[in-house]
Design a binder for these strands. Structure first.
Lengths: 162, 162
DNA sequence: ACAAGATAGTTTGATGTCAAAATATTTGAT
DNA sequence: ATCAAATATTTTGACATCAAACTATCTTGT
């Protein structure tokens, strides 16, 4: 063990159960935001470990369950990711028969994306896990939930898309 | 435009300036966490756009500025990422002369990582941008900052490495 | 001393992210 | 009518992330 590592272990005010938070990051919102989002995602992923479900499918399938027939560009706006990001996800969903593409007769460049029956079933299965994860987060956050969501939404509103 | 897309645009209670939030996600903490983290990271990245700095360097260089001489595994614990993730980042930092590796004489498998003078300069430049970003987030969050950080830390504590 | 197991780091493979460039198609302007 | 500009999607390339497999080295138990 290096001497710096010893110093890390002896940081005042931190014990073994605390995660090691560098002093430079301790009061930095972006840092805590990032770590919290990562453990949340990892926890959700871990729930799907023994299944044939992929976490990345959930948001797309759920958006389609609500708004069937969006184009990739519209989907990208709703889910907040770049259009190019969706290409490979949609390909995977299509190969697995969870969505189908329907050519737009008015615009040959575009097509709409629809859930298949299989896709709906898959969405429902994922949604059950997602709800369990949500309940877990709700339990952790407790009565502060509304305030938390409001703050996060404020951040998105203030920094989002320009 | 598809009919579903029209429906999206006509959602009650949402106007053009709101981001399009699917109803299924509206009260989901994980969703808001993810979106907030993404816009925060994108905003930070955008600040570095005209520079030769990379956002991914910041956390590593800053941890090293505080605890010089950590091994990759120790670094990975402190920054909360898998060891394998660090390999390529450290390679990049090393190629650019921002860090140097020093073989551990007591263990041939391991080495410690130290900032070079160039690395220190780079860390300082990145830190200035990070501070500006922090101030921006602080301004958005305002008096709720302490509560926000506490909630996020609670999430990490409850879900993290469990 | 030696074999077994643990540990440090890297490599590989699957995902997922963006931005920029490339294609194809539609729209608009003259 | 035609040509330029805008738009929809895909492709490519750079990065990051994890987990699992792999190599090398160290530690431990006998």
């Amino acid at each position: 063990m290096t001497s710096a590592a010893k110093a890390v272990e002896e940081l005042p005010g931190q014990n073994e159960t605390d995660s090691l938070i560098p002093a430079a990051f301790r009061d930095v919102i972006g840092y805590h935001l990032r770590v919290a989002q990562e453990v949340s995602f990892q926890a959700f992923s871990a729930m799907l470990e023994k299944t044939d479900l992929k976490p990345g499918w959930y948001s797309i399938l759920t958006i389609l369950a609500e708004y069937d027939g969006l184009t990739p560009s519209e989907l990208s706006k709703v889910c907040g990711r770049d259009r190019s990001t969706l290409t490979s996800t949609l390909k995977g969903l299509s190969i697995r028969g969870l969505i189908e593409r329907r050519q737009n007769p008015d615009d040959q460049r575009s097509y709409s994306v629809r859930l298949t029956d299989e896709g709906r079933k898959m969405q429902a299965r994922l949604h059950a896990f997602a709800q369990e994860h949500d309940r877990r987060l709700d339990a952790i956050v407790g009565e502060d939930k509304e305030a938390l969501v409001a703050i996060l939404a404020r951040i998105v509103g203030a920094l989002g898309k320009g």
